[in-house]
Design a protein around this nucleic acid. Structure first.
Lengths: 202, 202
DNA sequence: CTCGGATAATTGGTCGACCGACCAAGAAAG
DNA sequence: CTTTCTTGGTCGGTCGACCAATTATCCGAG
């Protein structure tokens, strides 16, 4: 009863990675099966063996990117002593990713666009945001109960944090010359600290 | 020397409006000349009389939406007594627009996606953000010099304000049931006031 | 006032290109 | 030998761009 160990997961991952690269380069409107197949180094037909259709590939790409970001945030925030360190780590993880892997937010943008008029994608998107809010909410809750953070409503604090990080990540992706990583990081810390941390307003 | 008064501007506007509706409904990937022509009630061929290609129509749609938002913000912030009232008006104008005209941010998202790999669109996008930063920067400068706002670096204050509004507008567009206008407004005011206004941190 | 040439605006249809989906058949792995 | 995996090619359909032909509009001349 050894679990069947085919090449399927590897090949699938290979295709998803290729999809992400194509998506970041050409956008969803310019995404074609031929290009993805070429980028992945496989035949065209196989794409339909692993994915129902193009939208499913987009969803898979978005899920992978989301999971990667989750992983990076988890790695960075692990071992944070207090809420301030945790917030700094969260900001750092998100914004650094936006700079080092510009593909990430490009995929997000393409995904958002399609999620507006595709129920499957909309559900995936809602779930991703719910997860993000929950993750941030957990950090905020701890900070509030320990008296480090102001007694802000968790849901609202998470919404603000998420919005600010999304917005700054977008600016980093749009125009890396204008908005740099150190600047974005400093700005985000200042704004979020004043909003969230007790005694942080000179 | 009376300026020629053709129907061109009207017809052009009509096509742009139709493009916006189609874009919001189907996204850029699902945008076809036939659909836009049908939505506008004109023939297909005429689209190429007014626009070089599909990308030009997207740019025109984005410019129109940006201009509309500008106008609303200007109308709302006109006559604000101090920086606090001005900030409140700015927040209100942006977020109300995101709710009342959900097409706006949908068009923005589609536009962002294409701007990533189209120079013309990228330039238009950069200009729009530069204009927004400048507009917000002007309001912040006045507030700082009058001693209402903290002596924050204008560029950075504008970036934070823009990022937060973008992020919240996105949440309002994605999931209007979860993020409502009153909540988004209250949250934005709390966060930005603590970040920007002197003596706003209980 | 209006006629008529010139220009602007609009139509409907054509064209080559390409797309996503699909499948029959074969290769590889178990 | 069976199941999984992969190929390469086909198919109907549609797309964006383009254009020749037609109609509407403008304006100066008579």
């Amino acid at each position: 009863m050894t679990p069947r160990l085919g090449v399927a997961p590897v090949r699938r991952e290979q295709i998803v990675r290729a999809t992400i690269r194509c998506l970041a380069r050409d956008g969803y409107a310019g995404l074609t099966m031929k290009r993805v197949a070429g980028e992945a180094g496989v035949s065209q037909g196989i794409l339909h063996y692993y994915f129902r259709d193009k939208a499913a590939m987009l969803a898979a790409a978005a899920l992978r990117v989301t999971a990667d970001l989750d992983r990076r945030v988890a790695a960075e925030t692990r071992g944070a002593r207090d809420a301030r360190a945790w917030l700094r780590a969260l900001i750092r993880a998100c914004l650094r990713t936006a700079v080092e892997d510009r593909d990430f937010w490009r995929v997000f943008v393409e995904f958002w666009g399609e999620a507006f008029h595709d129920r499957r994608l909309a559900t995936v998107n809602r779930r991703a945001y719910a997860r993000a809010r929950h993750l941030i909410g957990a950090g905020l809750t701890e900070g509030v109960t320990r008296g480090v953070l102001r007694p802000v409503a968790i849901e609202e604090g998470a919404a603000v944090t998420l919005a600010l990080l999304d917005g700054l990540a977008l600016q980093l992706t749009f125009d890396p010359e204008l908005m740099t990583l150190p600047r974005a990081t400093r700005v985000a810390e200042t704004a979020l600290f004043r909003y969230l941390v007790i005694g942080e307003s000179p």
